[in-house]
């Protein structure tokens, strides 16, 4: 923390170089999202706008799982909010960088903050990196890859025209199953995850064709885990 935080073109370019391995993880997720967008009935333009403006894969997949025509802004917005609550805890960790940024540098850096480049940024910051433009440098190629691969997936979906229930849509489940494997921290996840799954199944039966089951399951599971942790503390 001794040296001042800077925001330079060199830092941005360093971020771009560091982003290359992250793009390999972003690309397949983007393709899956594009295929699912086609399945949900989104046009090319709508897919482009969603990936470019929202730029949050998990939230997009969750919202698209129960997309309706006409779409519900309330349901989609609420689903995006709950899925992205984790981002609210990520920003403050990078406060030593963000606190020194003003105007577009801050707002653009926050816009491109995603799970992978955030983790890279935290590691760099803790290792003494003082050039905050690195986050934007890793984020911009990820955003561009995200939009491009979403469009590729949308094209693939249009070519295949899969019927609802086609096994290609399992790819969206596979994305989340992969994330669960990465998130697994041991036996203490069993209770919150079990509660989340059970509440989600029950809610999906009670309120079919809405995304409330994801919200209800996630909140019930997280509360169960946090209450258990507090009782054990």
């Amino acid at each position: 923390m001794n040296q001042p935080v800077t925001f330079t073109w060199a830092g941005f370019r360093k971020g771009v170089r560091l982003s290359v391995p992250l793009l390999i993880g972003t690309a397949p997720f983007g393709v899956v999202c594009g295929i699912v967008a086609q399945g949900a009935g989104l046009s090319y333009l709508e897919t482009f706008l969603m990936s470019g403006l929202v730029y949050a894969g998990s939230a997009q997949l969750v919202a698209l799982a129960t997309w309706t025509h006409p779409a519900s802004a309330l349901a989609a917005g609420f689903a995006a909010f709950v899925v992205n609550l984790r981002l609210a805890l990520m920003g403050p960790v990078l406060a030593p960088w963000f606190d020194r940024l003003r105007g577009w540098r801050l707002w653009a850096s926050l816009f491109v903050m995603a799970d992978q480049n955030w983790a890279l940024g935290v590691r760099a910051m803790n290792a003494g990196e003082r050039d905050a433009a690195q986050l934007l440098g890793t984020g911009v190629p990820m955003l561009l890859t995200w939009v491009a691969t979403s469009m590729l997936g949308r094209v693939l979906g249009a070519g295949l025209r899969p019927a609802p229930g086609h096994p290609i849509f399992f790819a969206a489940l596979a994305v989340f199953i992969c994330m669960l494997v990465t998130l697994w921290r041991g036996a203490r996840d069993l209770l919150p995850w079990g509660v989340a799954g059970a509440v989600a199944v029950a809610t999906a039966r009670l309120l079919p064709h809405t995304s409330w089951y994801i919200v209800a399951g996630a909140l019930a599971g997280s509360l169960a885990g946090a209450i258990r942790d507090r009782m054990q503390a």
């Binding site: 917005g77 609550l85 609210a88 606190d99 816009f111």
Partner: peptide, 30 residues
Amino acid sequence: MSLSLATLAAIVAMMAATYACRAGGYLLFT
């Protein structure tokens, strides 16, 4: 290249909710 108004509204709502988490979390929790 169709764009339905309801879909656009839903995308804008998602964008607002997502950016509220990204930027709002930083502003609030610091």
